[in-house]
Design a protein around this nucleic acid. Structure first.
Length: 227
DNA sequence: CCGCGGATCTTCT
DNA sequence: GAAGATCCGCGGA
């Protein structure tokens, strides 16, 4: 005669299991905000160094597991390959700022600006592993915190994670070392292998090895071959 | 699991 | 005026 078990929203969503559930306070204590200098390096270097880092917005956070580099030298897939336009202005600005663009009439995608001030370069964040606030992320994406959908689908794509972390064009040009949207590194760095592949969803320069993934992580937008 | 088509609108030619 | 750094649902294996 027990009452039917009705798990709380947080329970249901979390029970879909991320391997590593974090409380926000604990997460903040275990990480520190990346300084602007971190981003003032070659784009490919930053793209790899960002793997394992944590994007935080309010009570929601996810760990970066997949990135793509968009570089200045003859990269026709980069939005800025022809030079500066109103849209790509922030990519030519100081490093450590957000570049958020709108695509296919409905999605926002989140990039980090790299290289020295005046030199274009950006890293597209393609997937994160949810760490905290999954019910809230689920509400942002599905309009409901209780869902039977797999946790994998919550943030395993550039537009999905932007949605889950409420990143929009309003964040375009904002700095990432302060303010409501920040990127943090673990004080005790995680150990993992980095896989390299061609970038996804582009037509030009599709062969360049500029996509970087946390090898074997289940939250990739597309699995690493042989995983 | 995989491939296909539709949705939808900003940006630059 | 066309393409685009995507996602989702659907149908089939």
């Amino acid at each position: 005669m027990g009452k039917p078990e009705v798990p709380s929203p947080q329970r249901i969503v979390d029970s879909i299991q991320t391997p590593d559930p974090w409380r926000l306070s604990k997460l903040l204590a275990a990480t520190r905000i990346l300084a602007r200098e971190f981003y003032a390096r070659p784009t490919v270097e930053v793209a790899q160094a960002l793997l394992g880092c944590v994007i935080r917005r309010g009570a929601t956070a996810g760990m970066i597991v997949e990135t793509e580099a968009y570089i200045g030298q003859g990269d026709r897939a980069a939005h800025f390959w022809r030079g500066m336009t109103p849209r790509t202005e922030v990519i030519f600005g100081p490093p450590g700022h957000a570049y958020v663009y709108f695509i296919y009439g409905m999605h926002d995608c989140f990039n980090v600006v790299t290289e020295a001030d005046g030199v274009p370069g950006a890293v597209l964040i393609r997937a994160v592993e949810p760490l905290t606030g999954m019910a809230e992320m689920s509400r942002r994406r599905y309009g409901i915190g209780v869902t039977k959908k797999s946790a994998r689908g919550l943030t395993n794509g550039p537009a999905k994670l932007a949605d889950a972390l409420a990143i929009t064009r309003a964040d375009n040009g904002c700095r990432l070392d302060r303010g409501p949207l920040t990127i943090r590194a673990w004080r005790e760095p995680r150990q993992f292998e980095i896989g390299v592949t061609r970038r996804i969803g582009i037509t030009h320069c599709a062969d360049l090895p500029l996509r970087f993934v946390w090898k074997g992580n289940p939250f990739l937008s597309k699995p690493f071959p042989n995983d």
